[in-house]
Design a protein around this nucleic acid. Structure first.
Lengths: 333, 333
DNA sequence: GTGAAAGCGCTAACAG
DNA sequence: CTGTTAGCGCTTTCAC
């Protein structure tokens, strides 16, 4: 004998009112006489009634749920964004459906359609690059989308980022001003717009301003992994570079430890600047000078922007740029 | 003029079949003549029909969504579990609603009720301890629950863990065998069963086996933070300990760096073993010897267990224990 | 301030 | 193999 789920109808009957009235008190509609409200609340409590959000979603066409597409939650960078997203979502009474994509183009599309099928009210997308296909899906649906820490070359949807170009320029400039003539640029896939378009441009701009010439031999593409950094350190030494700007902390720690193991003194003989100022940069010795980006805030602001879009509020600016900085530690002079 | 959402009914009309038939092909029911299936599929494609999962959820009383309550996704430990959970969830066609609780008792209850209102088919709970209140909510609802990396003193629900007691005993034993007479036990809140019941018991057992006496002066409670570790290192030195077992990597790196900064040589003068073998233990020099626990797998197995519970399959064992290990690095002799 | 009634889009017997 | 018919539990006009 299954325990019968109790519905709004049961409450209505017990309280001698209509379903409509129960619905009103549940939703805090003011048009209810205090006395009846009290009576209804009483019955709700007595029957231990719990509103069914699915039924509500079907009737109201709103699920108070947003989809979050993320390359990998177990990556500290994205996890920080996710935390910011969830906190603001909670603040506005939304839940998030979290889906990992591994940055895989096909998975991203599958996951997006899945989320749309679940009638999410909005989507936050994180990814290294935006394919034509996914952009097509975005515009095909009326569901609002915000990119968090991700760049769409022709921005049709909302987005929140720092100015990657400027940040990289400043980091490279610091290295140049310290007297380095050969500065390595160590990045992930240059196909990703943040690396290949924004950061590389900033790097080149800084070289130019400092009268240094650009050389492809100083540009390295790599996976964002500690081990990859260890291995890469040899090639960097061989390139003749005396400093490096690295786009990822894990990679940067690998490079730094690799250099140290090879007897290279940091920062005396080689300077390093990394990009995310995560805990790794403090644990390693010497500490790594780093660009700072407000990861949590990027997530939080993305979600805030999405709430506005979902409410069809007027948006002053669809592309939000948050401030960045540089914090100096032991890996630069 | 709003774009009309197209429904199963539209497809039925266009294909000259009933809703039921459309529903059958959408759900892969084999009882459909190939010819009609083809016709329906064609119309679905032409009309660009997308099934509405909310309506389906209401009608079928299944949402293919599970709730995941997590203290903090931006903590690498929990993020790893979450990744394992999501991968297996995806494998079984479920989505996860992720909700951060900050380990806060009240939030946990709110979040759980919220998830239940959304009619999730199951819940995975991660938390440092299980309060009476939340346990009450668990049993009040018929929704299956699995604890991941969390211990319920009287286990009424499913759970997946390693044997924390055994692992701690082995770690402490290693330290004792290396000749240390005063071994510190550095933990988070001892109120949490994993620390206060399992790990502490393992620590005591190892001391006993090695003829060492237990002293409260060697037991430290702390936040799981790098900075806390730095500060704690002084107190540990003062305690006269020559080795420490630490329950958290971030805390352990703080302690190790704090000791090194105070001129203590690791491992010659002080040995350290930590618990999660995260990247931090490789980045710091010397590398930290660590207990290894299969974080991703704990998440994955939890979700797998939950699918069985949701399917009402027979379970051989509700409490799953996964294997652990110890990996030696530079912080022990 | 309150009620009646019509759906929201889909699944699930039950017939045939 | 296919169609009919009830709902699932709630929101939302529209009356009164």
């Amino acid at each position: 004998m299954e325990k019968q789920t109790i519905t709004i109808y049961d409450v209505a009957r017990e309280a001698n009112v209509s379903m409509a009235t129960v619905s009103r008190v549940v939703n805090g509609n003011p048009n209810v006489k205090p006395a009846t409200r009290k009576k209804v609340l009483e019955v709700i409590d007595r029957l231990d009634y719990r509103p069914n959000a699915v039924a509500r979603g079907l009737a109201s066409k709103k699920t108070t749920t947003v989809g979050v597409i993320i390359p990998d939650v177990s990556n500290i960078f994205f996890a920080s964004l996710a935390r910011g997203i969830d906190d603001v979502a909670t603040m506005y009474k939304y839940n998030i459906i979290l889906a990992n994509s591994d940055g895989n183009d096909e998975k991203e599309i599958n996951v997006l359609n899945n989320l749309l099928a679940k009638q999410v009210d909005g989507v936050i997308f994180m990814g290294h690059h935006i394919t034509e296909a996914i952009r097509g899906e975005f515009s095909r649906s009326k569901t609002p989308v915000v990119l968090a820490g991700s760049i769409d070359p022709d921005d049709q949807v909302g987005s929140v980022n720092i100015n990657y170009q400027e940040a990289t320029k400043e980091a490279t400039d610091l290295l140049a001003k310290n007297g380095n003539k050969k500065i390595a640029f160590v990045s992930g896939a240059l196909l990703d717009p943040i690396n290949g378009r924004e950061r590389l441009a900033g790097y080149k701009a800084a070289l130019k301003e400092n009268g240094l010439k650009y050389s492809e031999g100083l540009v390295f593409e790599s996976e964002y992994q500690y081990k990859a950094g260890i291995e890469l350190s040899q090639r960097i030494i061989n390139s003749g570079a005396t400093a490096a700007y690295v786009v990822d902390d894990e990679l940067a720690t690998g490079i730094a430890n690799g250099l140290i193991d090879s007897g290279v003194k940091i920062p005396e003989e080689f300077e390093v600047i990394t990009s995310n100022n995560s805990l790794l940069t403090d644990v390693i010795r010497p500490g790594l000078t780093s660009v700072t980006q407000p990861l949590y805030d990027i997530g939080a602001v993305s979600m805030r922007l999405l709430t506005k879009l979902m409410n069809k509020e007027e948006i002053d600016e669809k592309s939000v740029i948050l401030p960045h900085g540089i914090v100096k530690k032991g890996s630069t002079k």
